[in-house]
Structures are given as C-alpha cells and as structure tokens.
C-alpha cells in the first residue's frame, strides 16, 4: 500500500525534533514581542513620573492644582500652578466634540454596515479610513484658516478660535475613528441574528433597533469611549483652534486652553528640571492616568465585563 510510506518518518521516542525547536523559538520571539510593549509603556510611565515626581512632593498644592483656574508658572512675582481652567478647556472641547461626533459616527457606521452593499460599501469604508488618516495639524490648519473666519462671520463674535471651533474640529477628527470601530462592532454581529429577525417579519429598522444594536452595544460603547480618549489626548489641532487662552469658558464662543496644548506649547521654553518643567510633567501624568482609565474602561466594556 502506497499510503504507508508517508508514515515511515513517525518518531517513537520523545527527543526534540526540528518542529519542536521551531515551535520553541517562535514562542520565545512572541514572548519578547509581547513583553517589550509592556516594558515600553512602563518605561514611559516611569520617565514621565520621574520628571514630575519632585514637583508633586515638594511644590504641589493639591487644592491649588485642581481648583485654581490660574495657570501662571512664569509669574515673577508669584507663580501659580492651577490647572482647573485647562481641565475645563479640555473637557468642554471634548464634550462638544463628542456631541457632534457620536450621532454622526453611529449613524454612518449603521449605514455602512446595514444598508450599504457591494462596491458602494467598500468605497465608503475606504473613505472613512482616509478621513481618519488626515494629520491633526491639517485639521488645526482648517480650524485656523477656514472655521475661524466662518465662525466670526456667522455668529458675529470677535474671535473664532474658541470651544466651538476646537470642538467641531475635534468632532470631525474623532468621527471617522469612532465610525470605523463601531462598524467593526456591527459587523461582528452574526448574520444569523439578522436573518432570524427578518424571517419573523421585522423591518430593516426593527432588526437594527431590536437586535443588531443590543447585540453590538458593548462594541459601540467601546468605540465611543475610545473617541473620548482620543479627544482628551489630541494636541495640535486643539492648540491651533481653541484660541489657547487660559479661561473658564462661559459659552462656546470663549477661547480656552487644553491640557495637552499647554504641555506642547510650554515645554520647549522651560529649563529642564525647573519647577515649571516639572509641573508640565505632572500634567502629563494626570493626562496619562485619565486616558489610561478611559481606555481601560473601553477595553472592559468591549469585552463585556458586567456589574453583577
């Protein structure tokens, strides 16, 4: 029988063979790859913490840091390090951005996943990916040169670099990212669910509303949270479009300043090791913790960890 010839090489003792070594080597390589990512993250965190730690222990006044809107690190007379205005700036921009981005993104994700078909669907997906790839400085540029005069003209306000401008820009930036992740979440809903519901006589919209969205809700929430994380971390566009003025905004036409933009704008002008330098790193730690928490929540939500 010819079939038996193949089996001649079967090994009967337990000594390692070539496949065994290759498997070992691949395992080690994978381990190094995985561990280096973790080491890198921890390394960055240690670096940022080390630069800011002396400020935290020696100069930081917690009440002033979180509750004072006065960020005057370079004052000759009396330097103050209050980041409240920066937190409010970042939060207001991100909040507005999400109010704009979430409905648009979920809408387009639903459209792409549930309604668009064939080539049309592929084109739309490529388009969304392209939008997501626009560098943030380009968005900032749009905010500065297009939105700024438009806002001044339409709303008849003195400055067009404000919460509205930065929120719009950030919303436009976050939308394609949220769309793309949300679309993945919808795509992951098995077609069997849709068919079962349609076979019951559910209309297209009923299928989406009653079956697809509930099934994808963790993924969708994750997409939104990642968008929020993106908003908190975004720097360049926000720096260019927000007006970069330390201010507790009263409405969306006030200029504000964001946490990230403050670091970007000031770090280059400080002496390494100075209190100002260290205070910027402390803001960095704060941002790091916030985005870490948002991403962690997003991750847990996507994996469907529930309360009970």
């Amino acid at each position: 029988m010819t079939g038996r010839a193949v089996n001649n090489t079967i090994q009967t003792d337990d000594s390692p063979d070539l496949d065994w070594y290759i498997d070992r080597i691949v395992q080690v390589l994978m381990f190094i790859g995985g561990i280096s990512a973790i080491v890198l993250i921890i390394g960055i965190f240690i670096f940022v913490t080390r630069e800011g730690i002396s400020f935290i222990f020696n100069d930081l006044d917690f009440a002033e840091f979180f509750a004072s809107p006065r960020w005057r690190p370079t004052s000759e007379w009396r330097a103050t390090y209050g980041i409240l205005a920066l937190i409010v700036g970042t939060a207001s921009i991100t909040g507005l951005a999400m109010m704009i981005a979430i409905p648009f993104s979920l809408g387009s994700a639903i459209f792409i996943s549930e309604f668009a078909t064939g080539k049309y669907k592929e084109y739309l997906k490529v388009l969304v990916e392209l939008l997501a790839a626009i560098p943030s400085v380009v968005w900032g540029f749009i905010g500065l040169t297009i939105m700024n005069p438009l806002i001044i003209q339409i709303f008849n306000v003195p400055v067009g670099l404000n919460v509205l401008n930065a929120g719009l820009i950030l919303g436009l930036m976050a939308a394609p990212i949220i769309t793309s992740i949300a679309e993945d979440a919808l795509k992951a809903v098995p077609d069997g669910f849709r068919e079962a519901a349609e076979a019951m006589g559910a209309t297209k919209w009923q299928v989406i509303y009653k079956v697809v969205l509930p099934a994808a809700k963790n993924g969708l929430l994750g997409a939104v949270l990642l968008g929020v994380g993106r908003g908190f971390g975004e720097t360049m566009a926000v720096l260019m479009a927000s007006g970069h003025a330390i201010n507790l905004p009263e409405n969306i036409f006030d200029s504000v300043r964001a946490l990230t933009a403050t670091i970007a704008a000031e770090l280059g002008e400080t002496a390494v090791g100075s209190v100002h330098y260290q205070s910027l790193f402390t803001i960095g730690i704060f941002l790091f913790l916030i985005t870490f928490m948002i991403n962690l929540t997003a991750d847990l939500v996507v994996r469907g960890v529930k309360k009970g």
Binding site: G192, F193, A196, A199, M200, G201, K210, V211, P214, A215
Partner: peptide
C-alpha cells in the same frame, strides 16, 4: 413573513433575554 414561523438548523438565540426572545414578535 409574520404569518410564517421559521426554525433554523442551528438554534439562533437572539442576543436578548429568554423573555424578550419570545416577546419580540408580538412587540414588532
């Protein structure tokens, strides 16, 4: 389709509670 019930080869438990799986069609 509302007049015709279908049972598929592999059970398709919709991602809903037991109650809502059965209540869905009447709700629709």
């Amino acid at each position: 389709r509302r007049q015709i019930g279908v049972v598929f080869p592999l059970p398709v438990g919709l991602p809903l509670t037991v109650y809502n799986n059965v209540a869905l069609a009447p709700q629709l």
